[in-house]
């Protein structure tokens, strides 16, 4: 759900071309999507009003399904217990607004949606990049759900220098990539800021970052990628992207 009040000041950028799939939005609306993918979804929603209204529609269906559930009565005194809990907390202290003002508001706008900043504990300048070779850098995002992390679900930032390529690879699982800065081009098409690329094992690609600025992406994946180029088999032994 979104609030419309504070959006008027933001200049419009081009709407994304590559959107979230209906499956992803449905799972996010129902609340069953894993944390890593949810982070990509929340970040794309920040950059895409079309997917936000699609989500509103799905949530309205969820709300209507919810309203038609046969109610199950609570035990006697449940309301009084809730009111007593309100009494013991600060009854008059209704928060003025759900969101706090960020000190960063006056600075140059970040490329990182706040959903991501919350995980990093700061803006882009706090990111500890790790070099992977060929100029490519990553920074792991620590998820709060350790079970999902153990099951191989991860999220990380990926930075590819302008004009450079990521080696030819495919995916053993599913991968979501959201472009936060710059762009890249591969066999599927061109992906620019706000676009989401959804890949599975059927995609074998060699993304090349656009010229001008480095391409920074937010990635969610549930399995490591597998290099498929000539040296891929060897590199796979050493590098785990």
């Amino acid at each position: 759900m979104t609030a419309a009040h504070s959006v008027a000041v933001t200049p419009r950028m081009a709407e994304p071309v590559h959107h979230l799939s209906e499956d992803l939005l449905l799972d996010y609306a129902a609340g069953t999507l894993d944390e890593a993918a949810s982070l990509v979804v929340a970040s794309h929603l920040t950059l895409c009003s079309a997917c936000r209204s699609e989500l509103s529609r799905l949530e309205a269906i969820g709300g209507a399904l919810f309203a038609t559930m046969p109610p199950m009565d609570l035990s006697a005194g449940a309301l009084e217990a809730a009111l007593a809990a309100l009494e013991s907390s600060d009854l008059d202290g209704l928060p003025a607004s759900a969101s706090q003002k960020h000190a960063a508001d006056d600075r140059k706008a970040s490329i990182l949606p706040r959903a991501v900043q919350r995980y990093l504990g700061g803006d882009l300048d706090t990111v500890a990049w790790k070099r992977l070779g060929m100029g490519i850098e990553t920074a792991e995002i620590t998820l709060s759900n350790s079970d999902e992390a153990k099951a191989g679900k991860r999220s990380f930032l990926l930075k590819v220098p302008a004009g450079k390529a990521v080696p030819q690879h495919t995916h053993d699982g599913n991968e979501l990539v959201l472009i936060l800065q710059g762009s890249y081009k591969d066999e599927i098409g061109t992906f620019a800021k706000g676009d989401v690329a959804i890949s599975d094992g059927s995609i074998d690609h060699r993304p090349v970052a656009g010229e001008g600025e480095s391409c920074i992406c937010l990635v969610a994946t549930d399995a490591p990628l597998r290099l498929t180029g000539p040296l891929g088999a060897i590199i796979n032994l050493f590098v785990r992207v």
Binding site: T2, A3, A4, H5, S6, V7, A8, T10, R12, M13, E15, G31, E35, S38, L39, V41, A42, S43, L45, T46, L47, C48, S49, R52, S53, A98, S99, K101, H102, D105, A109, S110, I111, L112, P113, R114, A115, R118, Y119, L143, S144, N145, D147, E148, G194
Partner: peptide, 18 residues
């Protein structure tokens, strides 16, 4: 699932207006 669901911030300066 013991996670805080990642959600967009309606006051995010990046928020693309409708």
């Amino acid at each position: 699932r013991r996670i805080n669901r990642p959600e967009l911030d309606p006051d995010d300066p990046l928020l693309q207006p409708a």
